[in-house]
Nucleic acid binder design. Structure first.
Ligand SMILES: [Mn+2]
Ligand SMILES: [Mn+2]
Ligand SMILES: [Mn+2]
Ligand SMILES: [Mn+2]
Lengths: 220, 220
DNA sequence: CTAAATTTTTAGACTAGCCTAAAAATATTT
DNA sequence: AAATATTTTTAGGCTAGTCTAAAAATTTAG
């Protein structure tokens, strides 16, 4: 139905709309799809022509319901495939994104639904991001930043803000994976680094750069 | 490394080489990749430039070792994905081909190897076709046509000649699936249709059109 | 409120892959 | 051995998607 390129544009715009509000500017899109502003302008005209978004010169861009639907379907496929790669094939969480970036464009509704069932209708992908349902509904999780936890509080690692391989590998190496419990012992008022207990056993120390990129579900 | 289009050309030429001999002509390729002869000539120049095949004007085309390697890798991926779709996701054998036609172009060696392991290193796809190994070796199976069996002989259904959805659905509907045993009771000398026993139980009647498109492993 | 900086759009060009129509080469008949 | 038919190649053109450089619009600063 839509090309790989079109789906990538729509998915990127959708994600930008979530984090930045409604009107998305050309440069942000160019950055997101890894191309130049001139190419984005071209594509915006085409997508607007196809009623996937509304575009007004110099004013930015906004997805229509139709465009949002395609974006969410693509996101759904991406996250289901990431889950497959991680849970079934044993890929580490830093390796799944690039492959899912290709797999998300395979066209077959039957495949998506069968994959979903095969995986047991997962609600979150390996990075803790919510997987949109068949109906297109996304249950946004109310995770909070680990950096807002105070001394004495604890939570379960449930997601990440930064999705880069470098960061994910760093977490993996330090056993900071989804499901682990972190209890804050002390927050340095000098560099905001944190001393904590991992899973009630191990003493660990985390830089502010790390704690502000981990999402947790607060306990009690 | 190579585009979807290039991989499709190479895979098609490889299959033609298997069934027709070494030099493959333009029209056969055009037919295989569903395009026009003029487009094939263009592409042959490009693939020849990249040393994937040898091309001499008006003389036809032949894969190099390099080209053969790419073709076999693509065939390996195609058949592994078909196996995944059938064995794990429960797709019927007539539905897997079109989706595998897309999946075979996903680029990741690690994915192929992990998928292979996940599937238990299968040797044949859902149509009975052999799956090339990681080394690129294909164990050609010595299946024979059901139509060569004589009265009193029997065999196990192990593959198909015709891969069309229509034929596969017909077989499915008549429970003529891989692994079933067929014992010949009688061959009509009028229309070459066959009376047989399926799995030692059920009496069946098969047209010549059907028996000459089923491959079996002969018993005793 | 004008001037400078930034962002966005246009203009023109490129590649991959495809097409049609015509020309050239090869194969088949007579 | 011509004549005819078929196959293949060339020529020229199309679309999707990309780029650079220049022009136009908008935003920010003085
Ligand atoms: Mn991802
Ligand atoms: Mn993810
Ligand atoms: Mn197939
Ligand atoms: Mn097959």
């Amino acid at each position: 139905m839509y090309s790989t390129t079109e789906e990538n544009y729509l998915k990127t715009i959708y994600k930008l709309q979530i984090q930045l509000g409604t009107f998305i500017n050309t440069n942000a899109i160019a950055d997101g799809v890894n191309t130049k502003a001139a190419s984005v302008t071209d594509m915006m005209k085409k997508l607007s022509e196809k009623k996937l978004l509304s575009y007004e010169k110099y004013k930015g861009v906004q997805l229509t319901e139709k465009g949002k639907k395609v974006a969410i379907e693509t996101l759904r496929k991406h996250r289901l495939w990431e889950t497959f790669l991680h849970n079934q094939l044993g890929f580490t969480w830093d390796a799944v994104h690039d492959i899912a970036e290709q797999l998300e464009h395979i066209q077959s509704n039957e495949l998506v639904e069968k994959l979903d069932a095969f995986l047991g209708f997962p609600t979150h992908d390996p990075h803790g991001d919510p997987i949109p349902g068949r109906n297109g509904v996304i249950k946004e999780s109310n995770f909070i930043l680990l950096s807002v936890l105070q001394k004495g509080e604890k939570g379960i690692i449930s997601g990440v803000v930064n999705h880069s391989s470098l960061f994910l590998q760093h977490l993996e190496k330090n056993k900071l994976t989804l499901g682990k419990t972190i209890a804050i012992n002390e927050v340095s008022s000098f560099d905001l680094s944190v001393k904590a207990i991992l899973d009630g056993k191990e003493k660990i120390q985390l830089s502010n750069e790390v704690v502000k990129n981990i999402l947790i579900k607060k306990l009690i």
